[in-house]
Simulated assay, not measured.
Amino acid sequence: MGIPATTYNNLARPTGVTKRRSSPRRGSLKIRRTRSRDRFFWYSASDGVSRLVNSNNSIPEQVNNYSFAPSEFHHEAYPKTFPVGGVWPPQQIDDLVFATGSENTDCVGDTCYNGNICEDLDCTHTLAAWKAATSDWEKHFELRKTEHRGIGVYTRHAFRQGAILGWYAGELKTLASMDGSKSDYLMEIEIGDISPHTPLEPTPSIYIDGEHKGNWTRFINHSCAADCVFRIMRVGNTRIMAVEAIKDIPRGKELSVDYGEQYYGLTTKKRCACGVPECVERRRIRLEKAMERRKTAEKAMERRKTAEKAKRNGNIKRCRRVAPPILV
């Protein structure tokens, strides 16, 4: 597929309370699975214009919305975390990602880029209003090429700790449909009742796939000293994966989240390149060096044991045994 003449600035545009409490109970604290950004890169055409494409030479569609195909859920079992008598297979977004459970008091309301939340269980906030509130993301963030980590998201102004910066949009997919997928933009989100008292393990979940359709949040890179976190919240009756600042973030800073040790860990195939002092890669290198020293020491010990054994046995005569002659 060829590269269209659309400039990056045009293709990157998406189409279209009360003060937060100090309690740490806000939303689900489970580490979310998300993937690296290394499958997308910048392409400079002969006309000198840089454009955003992926490894298939196609442009990822910038959308600030959920989308899904009901037919993909037709063969899925009715989730055990759903109330009895619910709609299945889902026909609308709220049939699939309706808000119930521990995030019920954490509505992002109808504004963004601040720490205000709504705790009214019967509020009238809607996903449509939230999409409108987050459609001007380019006033607050910009995408830039990084030196070693593909595309990154940088702030245009400062944000305070606790501010909600956006949400992870994309296509809602079943886990089975993405089995074996090499997509680097999958975000897992639980569906149904995710209250702490729910005794189900594992909790039914789906993927938000942002590879072909998604918003700017899919380009937030990993850091072992992250300044953001993906957290389950709601907007009215709809569950979302919100991006929350967990520390004050200055202007011009690259946003980051921690992908978790299942993605960048001490034994994973992928190697972290964030470079912060507490980077898991530094610990990994120290561990690898310690293991190498241990192997070297074990080999040296084995050689010493072999040499000592040879020394102890050095004066022992080991003549060839010959059968005695047979007398006739």
Rank of each mutant, 00 (worst) to 15 (best):
P4D: 13
P4F: 03
K19F: 10
R20V: 02
S22A: 15
L29M: 12
W42D: 02
S46N: 12
V53E: 01
I59T: 14
E61Y: 09
Q62Y: 02
V63N: 02
Y66Q: 02
H74R: 15
Y78E: 06
K80F: 08
P90T: 03
V97H: 01
V97W: 00
F98C: 05
T100D: 13
G101F: 02
G101A: 07
D106N: 05
C112G: 13
T124N: 13
A129H: 06
E138M: 13
Y154N: 05
T155L: 00
A163H: 04
L172K: 03
D179N: 10
K182T: 03
K182E: 12
L186A: 03
E188D: 15
I194T: 15
S195D: 09
T198D: 09
P199T: 14
L200T: 15
P202C: 08
S205N: 11
I208D: 01
K213S: 10
G214T: 05
I220P: 02
A225S: 15
A226W: 05
V229G: 00
I232Q: 06
I232G: 01
M233N: 06
A242L: 12
E244D: 06
I249A: 01
P250M: 07
E254R: 06
S256F: 12
V257W: 00
Y259A: 07
T267L: 11
R271C: 05
G275T: 07
R282M: 14
M291F: 02
A300D: 13
R303H: 13
R304K: 09
E308F: 07
R320V: 08
R321M: 09
V322S: 08
P325E: 11
L327H: 13
